[in-house]
Amino acid sequence: MTRTIPFIIGFLLVVAPFSTPQYPLHLLIMILIWSLVYTAWSLMGRFGLVSLGHGAFMSIGAYVTALLWNYSGISPWIGIPAAMITAAIMAFLVAYPCFQFKIVGHYFALVTLALSEVVKLVIIASRDHTGGSLGFTPNREGDGTSFYALQFADKETFYFVVLGAWVLGLVIWRLVDKSMMRYALDSISEDEDASAAAGIHVTGSKLKITMLSAVLTALGGALYCQYQMFIGPEVIGGIGISLQIVFAVVVGGLYTMMGPTIGAIITLLMTEIFRNWITSLRTEGIDLAGLDTSIYGLMLILFIIFLPKGVLGELIDRLAGGRQKDTS
């Protein structure tokens, strides 16, 4: 029974675009893009490497791709890999010294937070090219649908592009989970010195997972840009987005493959429902701008206090606990 569930979900995901109205399809696409980013973050987050700099990698993914397209006419098919490589280099430059000098915990979180601020500020400061705080729009190619420009006027095609990217993210998560590197990283997160003594290449292992995570996040940023056709320094970067990424993963669950996706579904639906509610109130003349995000923020706090393992993690724990009780 439980084995067939993934197949049913898989089938539903493939036929979904053909039977879904535009708005839910839009939500589904957004969920998939963010799920990819959240999954990418959890690749390293699950090993105790809490980065508050993933907004930077997302921004790099989006801006490098879009700037190359607008100013040099380079297709996103080349631009996206270029952006991913840029993100990898950035991750290396910041993470290598961090790991070499054993910057961990709070320090690592705050150093990466600085990275996310640097990237945001560079984008704002180079406003002549990036549009600064006002945001940036990639040039449309022809009538809006172009395989070469990775732009699609219809949502259905784009849906399959992001579905593929999301599946790629999950496959990578699974590969890491099954690899030797996972054991190395688990042991490093327990005790770095003991792991080093046991012959584990501490810096190397952490660096690999960080760069992998950054690369996938950049892919998510680029896809976001190609789909929304608009990016801004605060829309896909800065401390706000960096925190949002961490939160969604914590809400969904850090240690399970589907946790980040569940987190994306919960947080996106929550914000979307609240947003629609506020908008409908506004048409009646009641302005409660900020109420939606207030409730959202409050729920995040409550989540962390009461469900620190995330929804899925907690559920699995409960189920596993229940099962143990049954057998004993």
Partner: peptide, 8 residues
């Protein structure tokens, strides 16, 4: 989370 909450 409180940061979001206070801003909002």
């Amino acid at each position: 989370g409180l940061l979001f909450f206070l801003q909002s």
